[in-house]
Design a protein around this nucleic acid. Structure first.
Lengths: 247, 247
DNA sequence: ACTCATTCGAGTACGATGTACGCAAGTGGG
DNA sequence: CCCACTTGCGTACATCGTACTCGAATGAGT
């Protein structure tokens, strides 16, 4: 792995099903990735160290490098792996709102189940098979409606951007609390609380104050708040789709 | 810094303008933050190490801890500092499209000038003064139009989500190329190119293929592509605003 | 059955990181 | 002038990714 092997991980198929000489592999890329995901879920992304993964697999850190060229590539694999949890029908149904909602809710669920996902999403783009598959389905939902490919991609992008942003906001503080090792209650009371109160008391940001005081969405179940925002995005898209096939 | 001083950085005012005994501070939080920003701009976020900052300031790493409690807090300071580059008038103009466009273009410009910003944005939320100020202006753009605060925040969120996502996409591969130390041309040719071609040749993702082949937006100047997407988002919002004050 | 190229597992080692700790040097109020 | 207090900074430690290395395992060719 030391020479000029700077190739996308997706073009580096795992060496398996081989029938030559040499010792048989004792692990697999998929197994290592699954372990890494479990660690990230349980602790956080920073806890995903090569030594830790090796430890959980009963081996050393360096053994993993037979399967994964670099740690960053492992992150790509993790990202793509959890996207496979989004369950989609084979083909879009023809109801674009329902189809895009499916993608949106699926993406959100994955993001909540794996809070490190949004962090990886902003690091570097990756085009694994599952990313491509979800993207393909989403684009397919808008096919045959008289839109050109840029419009389709634009609308899909709007939905994705909303989902990413909303999920990030939803996780946000909660994850930060966990990362600092405080329980969320204590964190809210001792860390964020006093500062927010100071902002409110300063009176310098009245509209921010209103979002804290008057917001009904804050007290809504997160699912409902997400749905309301998603409806807003879909309504915005719907208003721009030519009447031909408006749902 | 070792005991229970787990407090938001924004509630930890720098000890300055003091008139007691003791040596005078030789640096400042602002100076350290500015240096950190410069390093991140020139190299990347990972290059922002305490030793490197200290080096550029002609001192050691540990000296910085007199001004910044933890490295993560320094990231919060960096984030908030560059947001001050967004120039906004004192009050929203009354034309909500123009005002939100101002925020959007400003945010994008900052994101492009400091490509590490989107990475920090996804790490943990921060409520520095400049973040609050920009947010206040954006909310103000939608004030007095018969919207409740949740709707206002929702629409502002949509714009922010779009800008974040679009900027991320715009930077994305370019930054990844820089991070691996390759020049973008070579990176595109040797790293991404072959893989994208493989995807296209596989024929498994026809719509992805169309986004690569038929897209006109790809060949558009980035500014225009951003503007088109922004117009889409604003149009979506406009369609949902009661007619009272529709622009 | 023996050989041997080939592959895997894993130990060692290196440079780098954040930061806890401790102490010398500088400084203004009594 | 003294002394409590603050800052600057060197040392030290645990931890990280990963380059390098070598013995052990393995199957094809003879």
């Amino acid at each position: 792995m030391s020479d000029e092997e700077l190739i996308s991980i997706w073009m580096r198929p795992e060496r398996t099903e081989r029938s030559g000489p040499g010792r048989r592999p004792g692990f697999s890329r998929e197994q290592i990735t699954r372990t890494a995901v479990r660690i990230a879920d349980a602790d956080c992304l920073d806890a995903v160290t090569m030594r830790r993964i090796g430890g959980e697999l009963g081996t050393g850190a360096m053994s993993l490098y037979r399967y994964v060229p670099r740690r960053d590539d492992l992150f790509d694999l993790m990202y793509d792996m959890v996207l496979s949890e989004i369950e989609l029908p084979e083909k879009p149904s023809g109801d674009w709102r329902a189809d895009l909602s499916l993608v949106a809710h699926g993406s959100r669920a994955v993001g909540l189940r794996h809070p490190w996902l949004t962090v990886l999403a902003s690091r570097r783009p990756t085009l694994g098979p599952n990313v491509l598959h979800v993207n393909e389905f989403a684009l397919g939902a808008l096919e045959g409606m008289g839109l050109d490919i840029d419009e389709m991609a634009g609308f899909v992008g709007m939905v994705n951007d909303y989902v990413d942003g909303a999920t990030r906001r939803e996780i946000g503080w909660l994850e930060e609390a966990r990362r600092t090792g405080m329980d969320p209650e204590r964190w809210k009371r001792d860390y964020a609380g006093p500062y927010v109160r100071q902002i409110l008391d300063s009176g310098a940001y009245p509209l921010f104050g209103r979002t804290v005081r008057e917001s009904k969405a804050v007290h809504l179940p997160a699912d409902e708040a997400f749905q309301i925002g998603l409806d807003r995005v879909l309504a915005g898209i719907g208003a721009q789709i030519p009447d031909i096939k408006r749902g």
